[in-house]
């Protein structure tokens, strides 16, 4: 759980809450490659990360693996909101996850890992722990 952090902001320096654990920022695409209100998958080492750009321009990154089926598909879900929470719904069985925390809003037992993500001069970077 040390990998959890608040992903909302995207300044040039690592945002507050970036884990103290060793890790690296990896550039994955240009900001404009991302479609508003949709996700995209990125491969970092052997990790699959789902990156979302919401209507207000914010970026979020989650583990791409749907914890209910084990399939790497969360990036292909529908982005929306539930109350104040920005969300994505799994394209398989439609369970909804909070993009900010990775918590499943339909099953309190389940949370997916989230990753720090930022827009650095038009390049999207994702932080993943090393080792």
């Amino acid at each position: 759980m040390t990998r959890r952090a608040d992903m909302a902001a995207s300044p040039a320096t690592p945002p507050p809450g970036t884990p103290a654990t060793a890790g690296v920022w990896t550039a994955v695409c240009r900001y404009t490659d991302l479609v508003p209100e949709r996700g995209a998958a990125a491969l970092i080492g052997d990790m699959q990360v789902a990156i979302f750009r919401t209507f207000d321009g914010r970026l979020y990154a989650l583990d791409n693996r749907d914890p209910f089926t084990g399939v790497h598909v969360l990036a292909r879900g529908i982005v929306g909101s539930r109350g104040e929470a920005p969300t994505v719904a799994s394209p398989l069985h439609k369970q909804v996850f909070d993009l900010r925390t990775g918590a499943c809003l339909d099953d309190p037992r389940v949370t997916v890992i989230i990753y720090p993500v930022r827009d650095r001069d038009g390049t999207v970077e994702v932080w993943t722990p090393s080792g």
């Binding site: 209100e37 919401t54 209507f55 879900g77 529908i78 982005v79 929306g80 909101s81 539930r82 109350g83 920005p86 969300t87 719904a89 439609k94 909804v96």
Partner: peptide, 9 residues
């Protein structure tokens, strides 16, 4: 709000 998997489709 911003919609969801029910209303957007």
């Amino acid at each position: 709000g911003r919609g969801c998997d029910l209303c957007k489709p």
